[in-house]
Simulated scan of single mutants.
Amino acid sequence: MAVLVALGAFLMTLAGGWTAHRVTDRRHLVLGLAGGLMLGVVGLELLPESLETAGTEVHGVPAALLLFVAGFLLAHLVEHLLAHRPRALGPARAGETPTAAHGAGETDGRTPEVGLTAAAAMVGHSAMDGVAIGAAFQVGGGMGATVAMAVIAHDFADGFNTYTLTRVYGNAHRRALAMLLAAAAAPVAGAASTLFVTIPEPLLGGYLGLFGGALLYLAAAEILPEAHHAHPARSTLLCTVAGVLFVWLVVGAAH
């Protein structure tokens, strides 16, 4: 049953990626929505779940929060190790040296490896979604149905974000499509794995905290600044707020 339900997550992930691909003429709106979805998933789902699941403390601080900060710093470190960013030159005043303009150009300052690393993290997250479905069905049919509804609903955001993260860093459509297909298949594989293996709750909670920190960095430091660069802020901001509200509605319905 868990594997069959996970097929719904497969289709919803593909739908999210297809949506991200079709609206390339409104790139700033796509990025604004993606940033809101990522922020909502981190703040309203990943972090609360990690705090509840990984209940241990390290030197007075919940382990999930430490891993959350570690994930943020890890994403920051990976970006700066992989991205030797050529900065685009902005207009200079008379007598001054041209200055770097953030986000100029479609792929200026973007390194494809960063996008692939981020998308790979999304694939891992999607696999854990499948594991969550399988584990919930081991508890009971009602629990499994509730978790499955939340996973299937937010996998639209996962597909949307996987495709967007891959493309925004300059990867070709073929690579983005491959990562999208991997993210779509991951929940099915994760659900199937629960037939053979059970992941301890503290380990699962720690993973969610680590991934949440990395995702927050990508949303706050890369996706949202790029979305608001050289575009009217009002429509983009509305898309960002809509993304957060969508995740809130999904999480609220699941509970």
Rank of each mutant, 00 (worst) to 15 (best):
V123A: 10
W18L: 10
M179T: 08
S50L: 09
V251A: 14
A157S: 15
E79Y: 14
R22D: 04
A176P: 06
P62C: 07
A70E: 03
M1R: 10
G170P: 05
E45P: 00
G17M: 13
G144Q: 05
A118K: 02
Q138V: 04
Y207P: 03
V247K: 04
L245A: 15
V61Q: 04
H154I: 12
E113I: 01
V61E: 03
A145W: 14
T240Q: 10
T53N: 05
A233G: 02
T164G: 00
P112R: 04
L180W: 09
L245R: 11
G109P: 08
V251N: 11
A94Y: 14
T164E: 07
L7S: 09
R87S: 09
H28C: 08
E96L: 08
A94V: 15
G16H: 08
P200W: 02
G105N: 12
G95E: 07
F246N: 01
M149P: 01
M1I: 11
A227R: 07
G17H: 13
M12V: 10
A88C: 02
A219G: 11
A104S: 12
A242F: 00
L73S: 14
H21R: 13
M1P: 04
G252P: 00
H80V: 01
H84C: 00
H229S: 11
H173G: 01
A100V: 07
G142I: 11
D25C: 01
A220L: 12
L46D: 05
V139S: 12
A219E: 09
R234A: 07
L116T: 03
A34V: 09
E49Q: 09
G43C: 05
A94Q: 08
E226L: 15
V123W: 02
